[in-house]
Write a protein that binds this DNA or RNA. Structure first.
Length: 256
DNA sequence: ATGGCTACAGCATGTAGA
């Protein structure tokens, strides 16, 4: 089974990129983030033509938005992250497929909106930890894929590319990420590539050519799925295309 | 340390991204 995640930075601008990725990587499930469109504007037909059914959670105002594309049967079980009723951001989708639960997330960046913007990010991470704990307590195979907006360690960003006060690397951010993984979730890319400098995001401009990037897109696996982990790879070709997203895709394969 | 990019809303720039 193949699972993938990609922050598209506007899905309508990235239809060719997503289609190329679907055809080359052939994921069973692909989670998208930063749709930047309303639900009804999601280009479902283009993906259906390639054999992928989809479900989008869009948002008014051209911000956020998450979706799942699947070539296997799936059922959407959540379109938002529980814990804050007044939270209208489209940042969470959860599906049931292949006898497992998969969450696709777009975790808040946390650099805008001042202190409240960062506080929202930390609250969101705590809400995610709560949900992850519930899923793990029920012993259902579970994974979280998406744009976490967290560089977990110093190995996960180009040296000197960020001030230590940035919301992606702040100690409180990293502690919240560890609180999540310490529940018993495995960082798939890091598990198979220990010690390697790998990035999933490069700023627009010269950053990709000079490989000054960040590793902020992750796949976290419950023990049942981590035992089946076979490969975890980052698609550099997708980021090298014309008019790309500033992120690229992470793909993992599970045995069976 | 960030906006030198990019995208969006909506029509001039402001906000956000990371």
């Amino acid at each position: 089974m193949r699972l993938a995640t990609l922050n598209v930075n506007s899905v309508r601008k990235r239809v060719p990129h997503v289609c190329r990725f679907l055809q080359s990587a052939q994921p069973d499930l692909l989670f998208l983030q930063e749709l930047k469109c309303k639900t009804e504007e999601f280009p479902a037909k283009e993906f259906a033509a390639l054999g992928y059914q989809s479900h989008a959670v869009g948002q008014h105002g051209g911000r956020n938005g998450v979706a799942v594309l699947a070539r296997i049967p799936f059922k959407v079980v959540a379109e938002g992250l529980p814990g804050e009723e007044e939270d209208t951001h489209a940042r969470y989708i959860e599906v049931e497929a292949a006898d497992a639960r998969f969450a696709g997330i777009y975790l808040p960046n946390g650099n805008s909106g001042g202190a409240e913007g960062y506080a929202y990010k930390l609250r969101w991470m705590e809400r995610l930890r709560t949900i992850a704990a519930e899923r793990l307590d029920s012993f259902q195979p579970f994974a979280i894929l998406g744009d976490f907006n967290v560089c977990p360690t110093a190995l996960d960003l180009a040296p000197g590319s960020m001030p230590p006060t940035d919301a992606l690397v702040r100690p409180e951010t990293r502690a919240a990420f560890r609180a999540l993984t310490h529940l018993g979730l495995t960082d798939a890319v890091r598990a198979l590539h220990p010690g390697e400098r790998l990035y999933t995001y490069w700023d627009y401009g010269p950053a990709f050519d000079t490989n000054r990037g960040l590793r902020i897109d992750h796949a976290l696996l419950s023990p049942e799925l981590a035992e089946r982990l076979e490969t975890a790879d980052i698609d550099l070709g997708l980021r090298a295309m014309e008019q790309p997203s500033d992120h690229t895709a992470v793909t993992i394969t599970l045995r069976q």
